[in-house]
Design a protein around this nucleic acid. Structure first.
Lengths: 230, 230
DNA sequence: CCAAAAGTGTTCGAACTACACCCATGT
DNA sequence: ACATGGGTGTAGTTCGAACACTTTTGG
C-alpha cells in the first residue's frame, strides 16, 4: 500500500484518443468510429480508451492502437493533453491525444466492420464528438512539421512504393503541389531509397518503379551530418 | 449532479509542471524550486500544482504561473503529458508540462526568496525530482523549433533590447555561434523591429541602440506572406 | 496510333556564408 | 591613447524554383 501523500487533491478520469492516419488515392484519411457507449452513443468519434491503473499513457495509447488495428509496433506520437472542463459531456475527462501513421492496406474490410470503423478523407471529416475535430487539426499541423524533418511519411505507404505515390503523399501532407523533377532530384541527392527492379503497373501503362525506404542508407545519411527535409 | 457514465474507470491525480525560462548574461535560465511537501520535500524541482476540479489544464498552468511570478498574461505553451506509472514517488500522478518565456528582470529578489526559487543556468541544472529533467530537455527542443519560426524570443527580453543582446539570445537557444552581419541583415530585411534613439551603455563604452519588437510591423510582414525564421 | 502517366537536365535568381575594417567612447 | 564592444558591405556559393520534352505501353 502506497502512502497517501496527496489526500486533499482531486482525481480525474484520464483517457487517450488516437488519430489514426492512412493514405489512399492521393488523400490522407483518418479512421473514425461510431461511439459504442453513452453519452453520445452512435456519434462519430476518434477511437479512445480510459487509462487503467497499472498503465502508462504511452501504454494505454499502444493498447488502444492495437485493439483498433490488430498491429503492434506502429509509429505513434503524442499530440498533447486536452483538458477543458466541459469537453466531455458525460463527466469530466482529461484526454491525451496520440496520432499514428499506418498503411491502410493492412486493414481488412472485416476488421473495420467489426469495430464500426470507417476510413474518412481528411477533407471530409464530419462533426465529431467533444474536441475530436480540434485534435485532428492539431495533428495535421504536427504531422506537417514532423514529416518535413523526419522520414515518417513512409509509415503511410506500403513497404514498396513508387515515386509518384511518394510525391502525392507529400503533396497531401503539405497541401501543395510539388514539382516532379525537383522532388526526385532532392530525394535522389539524399540517397535513402532503394530502387527495385519491379514496376507498379496499376496506375499507368508504362509502369513506375518500386522503391523501398532503406534504414541503413538513412542512418548513413544522418551520420554525414545531413538532415532530412522535404 | 452529473450522470455517472464512467463508473467502472479509474481516476488519477493530474498536475501541471511549469518550465519557466528566462535569459540573462548570455544564458538561458530556468526557475527551480525547493519542494515544499512530501515526498522528496526540500529537493529541487519545477514549480507545479494539482489541477482542481473546476479548472481546465491551461487554467491550472496559468494559475501556477501567476502564483510563481505574480505576472498575468505570460507566453505559455503546453509541452506534453508525462504519465509513467512510477514517475511520482508518492502516488500515481499524471503531469502536464508547460513552458513559459519571461523577462527575468521582472522578478524581484524578494519574490524569489519568498518561494524558495532560484534562477539556474540551463547548463547547470542539477538532478531534479521525478522526470523534471526530461521535461526541461523536451522544452529546450520545443523552444528551438518554436523560436526558429515564431518571434517568441522577445518574451525573454526586456521591452527594449539591443541587437547584440538579441543575437546572444538566439545563440543561447540554438546553442551555436551566429555571424553578426548576417544576423543583422536578416533581421533588417524582416523589418519587424523599431529602432529607438536611446542607447544601452551598460555593456560597452560606445553603447548599443535599443530596439523594440513592433507587433504592427510583424503583422504586416506576415500579411506579405513571409514567415519569420531565424 | 493515341492517351496517360513516368521519367529526365538546365537555367536563373534568391538566400546563405564567409569575411575585415572603422567607429565611438569611458577609462 | 587604447581597449572594448558596436556597427557596416561585398563577393562567392549553394540551394531552391521554374520550366518542356521524350518514353513506354495498354487499349
Amino acid at each position: 500500500m502506497t502512502a497517501a501523500f496527496y489526500q486533499n487533491e482531486v482525481k480525474f478520469f484520464v483517457s487517450v484518443d488516437c488519430i489514426i492516419l492512412g493514405f489512399n488515392q492521393d488523400e490522407l484519411n483518418v479512421l473514425l468510429y461510431k461511439r459504442k457507449f453513452e453519452p453520445l452513443q452512435g456519434k462519430w468519434s476518434l477511437m479512445g480508451g480510459f487509462i487503467k491503473s497499472g498503465e502508462s499513457i504511452d501504454e494505454a495509447a499502444s493498447r488502444v492502437l492495437i485493439e483498433c488495428t490488430g498491429i503492434d509496433d506502429l509509429f505513434m506520437e503524442q499530440v498533447g493533453a486536452y483538458g477543458d472542463v466541459t469537453r466531455d459531456l458525460g463527466e469530466r475527462v482529461i484526454s491525451i491525444a496520440y496520432y499514428s501513421l499506418v498503411n491502410m492496406n493492412n486493414f481488412s474490410e472485416e476488421a473495420l466492420k467489426e469495430h464500426d470503423a470507417v476510413w474518412t478523407k481528411i477533407s471530409e471529416v464530419p462533426d465529431l464528438i467533444f474536441d475530436h475535430n480540434k485534435m485532428i487539426e492539431d495533428t495535421m499541423i504536427r504531422l506537417q512539421r514532423k514529416a518535413a524533418t523526419r522520414p515518417v511519411g513512409f509509415n503511410l505507404l506500403p513497404e514498396k512504393f513508387t515515386l509518384p505515390q511518394l510525391q502525392k503523399l507529400y503533396e497531401a501532407i503539405y497541401h501543395t503541389q510539388l514539382d516532379k523533377r525537383n522532388f526526385r532530384k532532392k530525394l535522389n541527392s539524399m540517397d535513402i531509397l532503394e530502387k527495385l527492379d519491379e514496376k507498379d503497373k496499376k496506375s499507368s501503362k508504362r509502369g513506375a518503379f518500386y522503391y523501398r525506404f532503406n534504414k541503413a542508407k538513412y542512418d548513413n545519411f544522418l551520420e554525414q551530418g545531413f538532415y532530412f527535409s522535404l
